[in-house]
Design a protein around this nucleic acid. Sequence first.
DNA 1: GTTATGCTATGACGATCGTTATAGTCAACC
DNA 2: GGTTGACTATAACGATCGTCATAGCATAAC
Lengths: 182, 182
Amino acid sequence: MTQSRQQLVAGAADMLRRRGLNATSIREVAKHAQAPLGSTYHYFPGGKQQLATEAVRWASDTVAEILRAKLKAGPVDGLRGFLALWREIITGNDFEAGCTVVAVSIEADSTALAAAADAFSTWEEILADSLRSHGAENAEQLATLIVASVEGAVVLCRAQRSAVPLERVGAQLEDLVRAATR
Amino acid sequence: MTQSRQQLVAGAADMLRRRGLNATSIREVAKHAQAPLGSTYHYFPGGKQQLATEAVRWASDTVAEILRAKLKAGPVDGLRGFLALWREIITGNDFEAGCTVVAVSIEADSTALAAAADAFSTWEEILADSLRSHGAENAEQLATLIVASVEGAVVLCRAQRSAVPLERVGAQLEDLVRAATR
DNA sequence: GTTATGCTATGACGATCGTTATAGTCAACC
DNA sequence: GGTTGACTATAACGATCGTCATAGCATAAC
């Protein structure tokens, strides 16, 4: 079955956003996914790097899908959905979970880092497309600001064990999106 | 001498922002600072956690000092100095260095994480004080947005190996600061 | 029923980690 | 000038890491 494989990827993504790349061992990922260690190298012959890369891609696709869905109701509602997603991840895990993509960006190189770059670019493009189609002239700039400030706020929230940074950033981003679109 | 001690702290901060917490070993920090391994536990009996905590505090103080100095010329110039500082760190190290505080926020817990939270709070307060004294009504909110978006942009820049995110974020932040102060 | 194939089980490999212990050096101070 | 105390040197401890090899098991195909 590819079910074990899928659980390994999802479990790895979850552990990455909690502890980071180097503190996440293959053994623990396998145990957490109730899969034997031997299976890990069967499914991912590229080793830890391949697993991390696929975990980033999975996390990226998951967020992208939610983002696209929420943006169907317009840029403001999309932004709110994006913020709600991260607020849930932060507060729902007692401030012990962050962003898988950010975690890998800090520690990885080569393919996993490239996957992280793709993730950010994808999110930016999704946001920019929505903003542009709603009349925003600075769509790309604003999209980059949204991704950067929300990801940064998630880091701040985790360190300070508070959701206030995300709320403050969200309020100002909503004003900006409202002003840029009509 | 306390010179070795200081070099250990500064060297640790530099390695932390390049590779992250768990990929930075005490042995490498000692070697990088040309200090013997034994000295590390003499200067830092609290072990790696103490060293990481002091490295975060050192990085925090360094940035805070620059920030305070640049803000003397006003919020806009202060913001520009803040952005230039990070642009230099990013581009001057071939996109292989990020922020020490962010790196520790992703991987650490307990005292080192608390030091990271203090760092963010300090930077926020310094910015908010300047904004408030120049007539900004939403000084705290704007200060949080600046810190979060710049730190997030640094992560994006590193992953994408490009300074564009920082430039985009900077342009919009400057508009916001200009509009909020007079 | 035999064979092939996808997955599991087990254990080992070299390397490196954080940390500690102990002995040694060397300068400053009474 | 002897002694104290700060610092160094060296080596080892157990633990864990990523990775690999090999043997075992299952199930499905012929």
